[in-house]
Structure formats: structure tokens, C-alpha cells
Design a binder for these strands. Structure first.
Length: 804
DNA sequence: CAGTGAGCGAGCTTCCGCTTGACTT
């Protein structure tokens, strides 16, 4: 558009991708622009809210929004009509209001339009029915904004004072951490109860084919003795089919994706973290492949419903189609958008990288399945009598009569049920038939505590509690990890014994077997600091930490939106007592370290305790007054809450001096990357098979010599003119190193034959992102006080990217 | 994928919710 041109209609939406689409629908009289979300916010400091004057918020246009606002302002001046078309929810209404204020538009007359779906009909209809800004809804947003700022910026400094610096607290994040902390404690306090599951395997002859029928006792047996008694009773018994019941069953598809369910399913089926899912979804959205990805609605537009029908009937036939309209379960949903769906159902796949293709495939299948017919099943329940006892065995089978939506998609599950067998088809059986027992087992099984959260299952829980919004789920999960409250990691399981009783050929055998239990992959664990902060906040600010706090204030926000409550009054009623507690806590509460006394050191008789120190969790021998007290850091995976006296004392056994070799001392210890030997200021990692507590001098020398040998063979080639270019042998074969940066060699390259020019070409063509260059001494020092895990994972690069 | 193995001290940190940006001629 040339300078000075008159614009007939200026429409302002939130997202630029949306602006592009809408512009196509509206024709040449309309220019559609985007505000890129909120254009104003509270400034960073303490003076953002004038508490004494009715909690008056001071708004500023942040630096990164100045250009957008300037452009919109200019265009608004040139426009005949301005239409504010931000989302129809609390935040969207506030965006329109801020725009009106900042662009000098008349609040009382400027046209406000809304649509819940980006379709031509919806937009035309919106244009035909403008309203004005709803100031009550805006006030509800102001109350939300002010409350969050007051809570966050008054609680966080108390943590700096009473726990340590750089911590944070807030309405959403602190509750998210509490969920993780409490789940971990439930797991630690859990006492597994065991019982015995009885399964009988029968040999069946299915027209000459040998098959096995598995039947089970419906209720497990409580003790080993009773299980054995049961098997004893079955010696020489006959087993008769007493009843066969067939009954139809059906499965129905799930609703189309919202942000939360997309994150869950991408986690279960593709193994993506919630941020990863959102980044990929954003790309799909920007490319026009899917509708908006931050939504809490399960609704599909009429256009989408029709397109799904066409696609299903074309690809699978009319019998597979069923119109379905889903209702939202979550009361906190604001439904400003459609569900997440493919923009064009006829695109069964898209161009893009692997992640984009897989996520699109998931979205396509989920959406299409949601408009498909039920799957029809036939369930068969076979009851078997035992001649020697009144108890019954039951076998169940399932046959799929009509696939329906299962042709396309089956939702994943969070439940891990290793004991549950997939019910399949049963062999032909008849009532009165006598079956021959192959064997009967009684297997000891254990009850299990609630599962640890994954990123996605935590999002699910937060959504159930009405805490957080689609746009904040992923950032919240990142925040609690960045602050070091929560770590996402894998944990190895432990070996557990269980009893296995078997009746075969009328003989009973009892065997003790072992299984691995409790192994975790990408699960969220609380850190010690997460525990300490949660306990502190819960003790002094139970209101904020209450799982219902958000739901309660949301009710009040709704009242404000309906015009039945004045927002300043609502905030005042919350803030006055809250602030009093803040002041009181700040003055009187003790510093907290989460200290736990473990007992006495058997050698010195001194007290052994664990607590959070300046650099993280530590163990200490000797009281505060003790001048010769000793310290040792806890290891990764150890926790103040669960560590035992024995394990804490172990920490003081390292470093151990192993002896002298080549006139230098050999010392063994455990570092960030596991056990190592240090000798002549060189480090040698201990192989997994060696134990740092028992390894001896002879073995240490061996390890040193093996490493020297490897190092001697490491160098393949160097070049006189460029000493910084080296071809080296690594654990995975030859690689190229130039000035400390590693490059992969193309497959099949003979490393020793490469010339310097060829090496430089390989380096120049290598587009894989390289790690930031090695820390300088200074940078390494700076990174030191960061939380243990975070320091190991994220080098100092974080700050630089943020500033930009 | 490749290597790695911290620790003296001042001033700063922080919320939740919208949305994607990107030095020049």
C-alpha cells in the first residue's frame, strides 16, 4: 500500500497467520493486520500498580511492540473504519481495549467483532454484527493481570530472603510444583500390598490346531499360603465350561484435539515434550496446514464437519461416517477458537520435516476419527467351574465386528498395565465341554502408587484444575524446570523378588523370581529446592497453594465480567490480608534449608544432617558450632527427603587415595559425569563395571594405561600448515576436529587419506548446529552457582539468547 | 554421540497471558 492511501476498513486480529487468511475472505475493501498478541503490559518494576489509588495499573508499550503499535496507529488514522477482531475471551477483549486506547479510538463506538472459527461465513457474519468493547470483560482481565503480578512479585522476594536468590513463585507455577512434590511423597510413602493372581492355561484343540485358552480367577488371593492352598485344592480337579456369554460392545472416538490433548497424545505416541509439540504445531499453523494450535475448544466448524464427511465417505464409505458434536468438559474453557484440525481434510499428508509430518498425521487422524462411526465389538465371557471348589475361572475374548473409527485412529493411554493382556479372539468352545489343564499359576503382584507425571500428564492435571491456559501450559512446564524446582529425567528401576507358584501335572512348585520395577523415562521429579520452597509456601501461603485457588478467583473474575462485581474491590479483598501475611512472613519466618538430621556418625559420634546449601543439597558431619565439620554434596538422583544415614556416610568416603603410581598420587572420586580417577592432574573415567568405593591401585593403573593407549591411537593425521586441524579416532570412529569443534566425516571416507583442503570443505559444508565454544575460565565460574542439573545440561548460552 | 571433572562473595533475580520477532543498502 502506498503512503497516504486511504484504507476503507482496517481489521486488527491477534495473529499474523490469521490476518493473512482473513484478508483473502474479505476482499479488497478490507486491510487485515495483526497486533501480535498483547500490545501493552505492566512494566517490570515495583511501581507498575498504584496500590494506594485503587490498584491503578500503569501500562506501557514494551520495546518489542513499539514498531507494531506505531504502524497500526498510522494505519488507523488513515482508515475510514477500524474493526477490532481480537479473540473472544477475556484476554482478547483486553487486547482490543488496549488497542483502542493506544490508537486513540473511541472506546464507546469502535466496532468490535468476534468469530470462533476462520471460515468465510463466520467472518462475514461477524462483520455484519459488530458490537462495542465490553468494559466489564476488560476489567476481569485487569483483575487477573493485577492479581498475578501482586502474587508473583510479593512472593518471589520472600523466597530470595528466606530460601535463596533467583527463585520465583506464582499462582500457576507454585501449584504445578506442589503437584510434583506431593506425588513424589506419595510414592515414597507408599507401601505396596501384594496379592496372588491365579491364571490357568488350558490346551484346546481347534480343528487339529493346538491353542491355549487362558482363564483367570476374578479376584486375586491375599497371601502365599492361601494361594498355595488354592492350587492344592485344584489337584486332580476337572474343569468344565459352565457358561458362555456373548454381548455386544462398542468403542467411540475421542473428541478432536485441544492444546492439552494434543500435548498428551504427542507425548504418548511420538515421545515429544510439550514445548516441542507446540513449536512443531506453530510451524504447521503458519504453513496453513492446521487451524490455531492454542485452543481449549473441541468444537469443529460447519465447514470442517462437512469436509470431514466428504473425506470419510470418499475414502472409507458412508457406513464409516457419523456426525458428532463434542461438548467441552472443562468449565474453565473460553472457546475462542476451533479445535485443532487439518485446514484441508483432503490433505492426508503434508510436505515438511519428519516432526511436522508425524504431528500432522496425528492431528489428521484424530480429527477424521472423531467424525467416524463407533467400532462394534463382541465380547465373550466364558465361565469355568472347578470340580473341587466353588470358585470360578473366567476367560474373556473380544472380536471386532466393525472397525469404524479404529480403522484410522486409537487414542493412547497413560495407564501402564503390564499385567493386562490384550483380549483376543477365543477358540471355539461349548457349554459342558471339559478342558484339560496344562498349568495353573499363582503369581505375586504388587499394588502401585500413582504414576509420576510426564510433562503432558502434568498439563492434563493442571487443565483439570482449571490452572493455566493453552498458551501457557508449555511455558509453565519449562519455568518450573528452569528454576530447578523440577527435573525431567530417566531413573533406573530396582530389582524386586516375587513368588511364583505353579501347578503342573498335579505337582506344585514354588519359585522366587525377580523383576525390574520402578524404571522411569522422561518423568518429572521434584528437586530438594522444589520440596523446600513448596513446604515454605504451603506453610505461610496455603491460600495461594490451594488447588482450588484459581477456580475460586476465576469465579470472581466471571462476576466482574458480568458486571456484578467491581474489580478493584475484588482485588482489595484479596490483597489486604495477603499483603499482611507477606509482611508478617518476611519479618518473622525463619530461613529454611529443609534440614533433616539423619543420626550419628559411628566413627566420631557427631551428628549427620542433610540440607540445602548455597550450591545445592549437601550432607554435613558435625554441628554448626563444630569447627571441624565436614561437607559433601549429594549426588544426582539423591534427595534430602529420602537419603539414609548409610548413604550419606558413603559420600564422605570419597575422594579416596588409591596409592602412588609413577611418583604421583592416584585419587578416585565422583564428579558430574560419574566416577573418575585423577592422576598427575589427568582424569580417567571409571568404567561402569568398576566401583569407586572398592577399586584398588592395581585396577586404577590398568585403567590409566588403557586410556593412554587409546589416546596414543587417537591421532590419525595432522597438517603442518594448520596445527588446529586434526583427524582423530573417537568412540564412534574417525572424526574431524578444527579448533576444538568436531565435524562428522561423510560415510565411507578414508580419514587418513584426506587432504587439508578436503577437511576444510567438510567443515564448511557441515550445517549441523555446533555447541558453543568451550567455556573460558570466567564463564565456567559464572555457571557454577546454577542448579546442579541445569548447569550440566544448559551451558551459559541461555542468557545470550534471551537478551537478543 | 566424539571433550567434560567449577566453589571469595556485588547486585540482581520475580508473575501470567496474548503473540512471533530477525543488524544493512
Amino acid at each position: 500500500m502506498a503512503k497516504g492511501d486511504l484504507i476503507k476498513n482496517l481489521v486488527i486480529v491477534e495473529s499474523p497467520a490469521k490476518a493473512k487468511t482473513i484478508e483473502k475472505f474479505l476482499g479488497s475493501d478490507f486491510t487485515v493486520k495483526s497486533s501480535y498478541g498483547h500490545i501493552r503490559d505492566l512494566p517490570k518494576g515495583d511501581s507498575a500498580i498504584d496500590i494506594k489509588h485503587g490498584y491503578q495499573p500503569i501500562y506501557i508499550v514494551p520495546d518489542d511492540k513499539k514498531a507494531v503499535v506505531a504502524e497500526l496507529k498510522k494505519m488507523a488514522k488513515q482508515a475510514e473504519h477500524v474493526w477490532l477482531a481480537s479473540d473472544e475471551d477475556r484476554e482478547g477483549e483486553a487486547i482490543s481495549w488496549h488497542l483502542a486506547e493506544e490508537l486513540n479510538l473511541d472506546i464507546l463506538t469502535t466496532k468490535r467483532i468476534v468469530f470462533h472459527e476462520i471460515t468465510k461465513e463466520a467472518i462475514k457474519k461477524a462483520i455484519a454484527n459488530p458490537r462495542i468493547i465490553n468494559k466489564d470483560l476488560v476489567d476481569a482481565q485487569q483483575a487477573r493481570r493485577v492479581l498475578d503480578r501482586l502474587v508473583g512479585f510479593e512472593l518471589s522476594p520472600i523466597l530470595w530472603k528466606k530460601v535463596k536468590g533467583n527463585l520465583s513463585a506464582g499462582r500457576v507455577q507454585s501449584v504445578a510444583v506442589r503437584l510434583i512434590v506431593e506425588r513424589e511423597r506419595e510414592i515414597n510413602d507408599f507401601n505396596a500390598v501384594s496379592s496372588y493372581k491365579i491364571s490357568a492355561l488350558f490346551d484346546i484343540d481347534d480343528n487339529g490346531k493346538k491353542k491355549i485358552l487362558k482363564a483367570e480367577l476374578v479376584k486375586n488371593i491375599d497371601t502365599e499360603k492361601n494361594a498355595e492352598d488354592f492350587l492344592k485344592r485344584c489337584v486332580n480337579a476337572t474343569y468344565t465350561i459352565e457358561n458362555i456369554e456373548n454381548k455386544p460392545a462398542k468403542k467411540s472416538p475421542s473428541a478432536p484435539f485441544t492444546t492439552s490433548t494434543l500435548q498428551q497424545e504427542a507425548s504418548r505416541k511420538l515421545g515429544y515434550g510439550v514445548s516441542q509439540t507446540m513449536i512443531i504445531a506453530q510451524k504447521l499453523y503458519e504453513a496453513g496446514h492446521i487451524t490455531y494450535m492454542r485452543t481449549d475448544s473441541v468444537n469443529l466448524s460447519e465447514t470442517a464437519l462437512l469436509a470431514a464427511k466428504v473425506e470419510i465417505e470418499k475414502s472409507y464409505g458412508p457406513s464409516f461416517y457419523q456426525l458428532r458434536k463434542f461438548a467441552n468438559k472443562s468449565a474453565s474453557a473460553q472457546e475462542a477458537h476451533e479445535a485443532i484440525r487439518p485446514t484441508y481434510f483432503e490433505n492426508t499428508s503434508i510436505n515438511g520435516d519428519n516432526g511436522e509430518k508425524r504431528l500432522y498425521d496425528l492431528i489428521w487422524k484424530r480429527t477424521v476419527a472423531s467424525q467416524m462411526a463407533d467400532a462394534q465389538l463382541e465380547k465373550t465371557i466364558v465361565t469355568l467351574g472347578i470340580s473341587t471348589t466353588t470358585e470360578k475361572l473366567v476367560a474373556t475374548g473380544e472380536v471386532l465386528k466393525f472397525e469404524g473409527f479404529l480403522k484410522v485412529y486409537l487414542e493412547g493411554s497413560d495407564e501402564e498395565n503390564p499385567d493386562e493382556d490384550q483380549a483376543g479372539m477365543l477358540p471355539p468352545l461349548s457349554v459342558g465341554e471339559i478342558l484339560s489343564l496344562n498349568e495353573m499359576d499363582a503369581m505375586q503382584r504388587f499394588s502401585r502408587p500413582g504414576a509420576r507425571y510426564t510433562e503432558a500428564s502434568l498439563v492434563k492435571k493442571l487443565e483439570e484444575l482449571g490452572i493455566g491456559r493453552p498458551s501457557t501450559y508449555a511455558p509453565t512446564i519449562s519455568t518450573v524446570q528452569r528454576r530447578g524446582y523440577v527435573v525431567k529425567e530417566d531413573r533406573e528401576g530396582r530389582v524386586r523378588k516375587f513368588q511364583f507358584l505353579k501347578l503342573k501335572d498335579n505337582q506344585i512348585t514354588i519359585e522366587t523370581k525377580t523383576e525390574n520395577t520402578g524404571a522411569e523415562k522422561s518423568k518429572l521429579f521434584p528437586s530438594d529446592i522444589g520440596n523446600v520452597v513448596t513446604d515454605f509456601l504451603y506453610k505461610h501461603f496455603d491460600q495461594i497453594m490451594d488447588y482450588n485457588f484459581t477456580a475460586l478467583v476465576e469465579k470472581e473474575f466471571d462476576e466482574i465480567a458480568e458486571g456484578n462485581l467491581e474489580w478493584r474491590k475484588m482485588i482489595d479483598e484479596f490483597y489486604v490480608p495477603f499483603h499482611k501475611t507477606v509482611e508478617n512472613t518476611s519479618e518473622t519466618a525463619d530461613r529454611v534449608t529443609g534440614e533433616r538430621i539423619l543420626g550419628k556418625d559411628p566413627v566420631s559420634g557427631k551428628t549427620v544432617a542433610v540440607r540445602v546449601g548455597r550450591y545445592g543439597p549437601l550432607a554435613q558431619i558435625g554441628d554448626e558450632e563444630d569447627e571441624k565439620k565436614q561437607f559433601a554434596s549429594l549426588r544426582t538422583g539423591q534427595s534430602i527427603e529420602t537419603i539414609t544415614l548409610e548413604l550419606a556416610l558413603e559420600l564422605f568416603k570419597l575422594p579416596r587415595v588409591l596409592g602412588i603410581y609413577e611418583e604421583k598420587e592416584m585419587k578416585v572420586s565422583i564428579g558430574r559425569f560419574g566416577p573418575y580417577i585423577v592422576h598427575n592432574s589427568k582424569f580417567y573415567s571409571l568404567p561402569k563395571t568398576d566401583d569407586p568405593y572398592t577399586v584398588d591401585a592395581d585396577r586404577a593403573i590398568e585403567i590409566i594405561l588403557v586410556k593412554r593407549e587409546a589416546d596414543a591411537n587417537k591421532l590419525i593425521k595432522t597438517f603442518e600448515e594448520r596445527p588446529d586441524v586434526q583427524l582423530l579416532n573417537g568412540r564412534w570412529g574417525a572424526y574431524l576436529n578444527i579448533d576444538g569443534v568436531n565435524y562428522k566425516l561423510p560415510k565411507g571416507t578414508e580419514a587418513a587419506a584426506l587432504s587439508l583442503d578436503e577437511c576444510l570443505t567438510i567443515a564448511a559444508n557441515d550445517t549441523t548446529p555446533k555447541k558453543p565454544s568451550r567455556f573460558t575460565k570466567k564463564a565456567a565460574k559464572k555457571a557454577a552457582p546454577a542448579p546442579r542439573k541445569a548447569a550440566a545440561r544448559k551451558p551459559a548460552a541461555k542468557k545470550a539468547t534471551k537478551k537478543k
